[in-house]
Simulated scan of single mutants.
Amino acid sequence: MSLRVTFVAAARSSPLLAERFEDDRPLDQGGWDEVQRVAAVLLPLAAADLRFCSPTPRSRATGDALGYTPLVQPALRDCGMGRWRGLTLGEAMAREPQAVDAWLADPRSSPHGGESMMEFISRVGGWLDTRPVEDGGRVVAVAEPAVIRAALVYALKAPPSTYWNIDVRPLSTTTLTGQARRWNLRFDGAPGQPARA
């Protein structure tokens, strides 16, 4: 038996250029409006056997607003950014340009004092690999875009640098099928079509 894990990207809490590392801000009005616009399309995912979310306020609020009543999963938290927590990339670059360059170039580095990109990808991958198949074949998880990018890099066994080339939009869905260490990316259809759990 295989699992089908559908990730739903949390609605936004700020404009793209104002995104902050480990952002704990709640949904902004634009995020709430976006959830209301797509709720009918994403509501069928509530039929999943298991429903989870990242611990961030916006992930929990997105899951609740979509009727998922998700269980918080600490392993689905954003990358631990140490002293850069709460900063934008531009702010971190202004304060520590060489450290940011090192972090972007080497997935094993953690000049900010938090997790390296490799540690982050491994943590999210470990969560994927420990989903018990016998607990249910369909899982939905509302998560931060960074978490979904990490899950895709892990599942596809892609080089860590691929992380920077994956664009995950708010309220988009991404489905992985398979089981521990054997995952496939699944495309569910064109935008606007009902989501399937």
Rank of each mutant, 00 (worst) to 15 (best):
P26M: 07
R12C: 13
L71M: 13
D28C: 08
L43C: 09
E134L: 13
S110F: 08
S109F: 09
G178W: 03
L87A: 04
D129Y: 02
C79M: 14
A65W: 01
D188P: 06
D188I: 00
T177S: 14
R123Y: 06
A155M: 08
A141K: 00
V41N: 08
T6L: 13
R85W: 00
P57L: 15
A75F: 01
R37N: 05
R60G: 06
R149C: 02
V38Y: 04
I166G: 05
E91N: 02
W127D: 08
V8R: 00
M93F: 12
P145Y: 04
S13K: 01
L50E: 10
V153H: 01
G189C: 06
P97H: 07
R60V: 15
D106W: 00
R85N: 02
P57H: 05
V139C: 10
R4Y: 04
L42S: 04
A47E: 14
T174E: 05
D49M: 09
Y163N: 13
M117Y: 06
V35F: 07
V147D: 06
A46M: 07
P55V: 06
R4S: 15
A99E: 10
P55R: 14
D101V: 11
P111Q: 03
S2V: 13
L71A: 13
Q98N: 10
D106M: 02
V38A: 11
E115P: 04
P74H: 03
A11V: 12
P15A: 14
W164H: 10
G63I: 00
D78V: 04
T56C: 04
A150R: 02
E134D: 13
R182W: 05
V5E: 00
T62P: 07
E34F: 11
G136D: 07
A18E: 15
A195H: 02
V5Y: 01
R196S: 13
E34D: 14
T69L: 11
R37Y: 05
R138E: 14
D188A: 07
A155V: 12
M81T: 03
D33H: 12
A39H: 12
T88F: 00
A155P: 01
G82A: 04
A141V: 03
S172G: 14
E144R: 13
M118E: 12
V41Q: 15
A47G: 07
P107G: 09
W32R: 12
R138Q: 13
E134R: 07
W103T: 02
S122H: 11
P170W: 00
R95M: 10
P44V: 11
S59H: 05
S172M: 05
G63Y: 03
A151D: 08
L42E: 11
L43N: 09
A158E: 12
R4I: 03
Q73M: 14
R169H: 14
D49T: 10
P26L: 07
A143L: 09
A158Q: 03
T130G: 15
Q36P: 02
Y163S: 13
G113W: 12
